[in-house]
Design a binder for these strands. Structure first.
Lengths: 226, 226
DNA sequence: AAATAACAGCAAAAGTGATGCCAAAAAATT
DNA sequence: AATTTTTTGGCATCACTTTTGCTGTTATTT
């Protein structure tokens, strides 16, 4: 998982906090989602499945503790890390927060450096877990692990040869692959297949992904463009 | 792992701190080991393999930061949780501490209730990872200890191979496991079994858990999806 | 400009190979 | 010994792959 795939949900009723914390985390490369109250926070947590949730304790309507409990009840979110934002001296809320299932708390006033260090430390474990072998080209996402691709948000499962062909072409967008090269890479240099084989696979890919992505260079080969 | 099997190493040069923190944690049922300086702390950490290490930052001879770095270098201790004890306002040491590989910090003066809550919270993650050897994926719950699974609330006992196969596939939902990989992981690379063996086990699992969870990627392998 | 040749697109058909399924044998557990 | 689990081989099937023959297009030659 790359850094910019890590989502952090920030829940606070003060726009200033949202602004400054959000800015600092975005700057570090994280994808930041914000919510302005507990209810909205819970909703977005369920929808976005963030790895880290930063919850202000003191909020109108639904406070952080309650939101935390609701979030923890959701099984999909049980691996998320939840940390509270709390003013110095609110020791009571620390205890209650931990009981509600929080992993940590951050005290206000917030110091950007401390915050970022803390977030990194909290996420360290999470990061180490899964590094997906996935490549992104524009709106196309190729996932070698799962033998599937995501095009325009839609998941498509491709047969082996088609997948490998796409995988090859998309590995260097813009580069023209000669027919020989393709044959070598996808079919292996021992196997000999007829001349029209590649075309047919290209056609299948065009059907599934849209014509415009695959350009034919006559007499040479094919290339993939965004 | 029972609570009284959990070891906490406490490193501080002030006997008072050792006394009060140690007392509170012992009271909670944890096994507490103490050290009075950094060097001793590192030594005991290596020897005792505690799950949680609480390090005072300010100590004569070897300070907490240095000790932390040394501990983190030890591969056996890389899963230990390290938290610093620091006086309020020492923001510098917080940052340096995280850089040195700490997971958290606790500010002095220490409030027993906060301390205990925090320790519990820190250990919770640890417990979930290593102790409760059970994994949840959607409505499926896999209990490696007892070789059984819970699917849609119903408890199912699976034979070894079936269990291991499911366990493997479900360990990374979505990921396609190639036949070779499966053979390696479940059967071991020395043993050679016929080609139809995997199919049959997949079939059994499909019978027991429902068709839709196991997808076949022809020419590649299988994957588990929710 | 017309004729020719080379090339790629296309659809359908044929080929192939991997997987599903079964029933039965072998092995392991009880 | 009885039962359960695991493996196996045969067969059918289906998905994927490759071929085929045709068409249209582009490039080359005359």
């Amino acid at each position: 998982m790359k850094k910019n795939d890590i989502k952090i949900l920030l829940v606070d009723d003060e726009p200033d906090i949202l602004e400054i914390v959000g800015y600092n985390l975005s700057n570090e490369g994280y994808k930041v989602i914000t919510a302005e109250n507990g209810a909205e926070g819970v909703k977005k947590a369920k929808k976005e499945q963030p790895q880290l949730i930063i919850l202000d304790v003191m909020m109108p309507e639904m406070d952080g503790i309650e939101a935390c409990e609701l979030i923890r009840k959701n099984p999909d979110l049980k691996n998320s890390i939840i940390t509270f934002l709390t003013a110095r001296g609110e020791d009571y809320s620390q205890v209650a927060g931990f009981d509600a299932g929080a992993d940590d708390y951050i005290t206000k006033p917030i110091k950007p450096k401390v915050l970022v260090s803390k977030v990194k430390a909290l996420l360290r474990r999470f990061k180490e877990e899964d590094i997906a072998d996935t490549v992104k080209i524009g709106s196309l996402e190729i996932n070698r692990d799962e033998y599937k691709i995501i095009s325009k948000g839609e998941e498509i499962i491709l047969p082996r040869k088609e997948f490998e062909l796409l995988s090859l072409l998309a590995s260097k967008p813009g580069k023209v692959f000669k027919r020989d090269e393709i044959l070598d890479a996808v079919w292996g240099n021992e196997v000999v297949v007829g001349g029209r084989t590649i075309d047919v696979h290209i056609r299948k890919l065009r059907e599934k992904l849209g014509d415009n992505s695959f350009k034919t260079i006559k007499g040479v080969g094919y290339k993939f463009v965004e």
